[in-house]
């Protein structure tokens, strides 16, 4: 039965959660020592007292790459069903996808020309 395959996946999920939870929260505390001190719980910063908070502003480049990722990841999601049915679609499917990919390539070239892809 096909549905059984998803039950198998759910068993994997349950085991995947069970292993870290049991070893970190049940077995681990019985075995490991626990003597926290101020020096131990200080944030590591090359042996010095940490300066300020880590959560400051960071480079805007990360946002631009995240935006590009969203566009191209959606493209991949659209391409997957097309690829599965490709042999049945024939020339029509090929031309359709040629147009679709071309539109996205224009977007990529635009980002390239606007120097979004340069990491500075």
């Amino acid at each position: 039965m096909y549905g059984n395959n998803y039950l198998f996946v759910l068993i994997f999920l349950a085991l995947g959660v069970f292993l870290p939870v049991s070893s970190l929260m049940v077995i681990g505390p019985l075995l490991r020592p626990n003597h926290p001190s101020r020096a131990k719980t200080t944030t590591y910063e090359s042996g010095l007292e940490p300066v300020g908070d880590a959560r400051a502003r960071y480079n805007v480049r990360y946002y631009l790459f995240a935006l590009l990722f969203v566009i191209f990841d959606v493209e991949i999601v659209f391409l997957y069903p097309w690829a599965v049915e490709y042999k049945h679609l024939g020339v029509f499917g090929f031309v359709e996808m040629l147009i679709f990919i071309l539109l996205l390539v224009i977007g990529l070239v635009y980002a390239w020309r606007k120097k979004v892809l340069e990491w500075k």
Partner: peptide
């Protein structure tokens, strides 16, 4: 690793 102390930073 199982026997090592689990340190959680105060600021985390």
């Amino acid at each position: 690793l199982l026997l090592k102390e689990d340190i959680i930073p105060a600021n985390a």
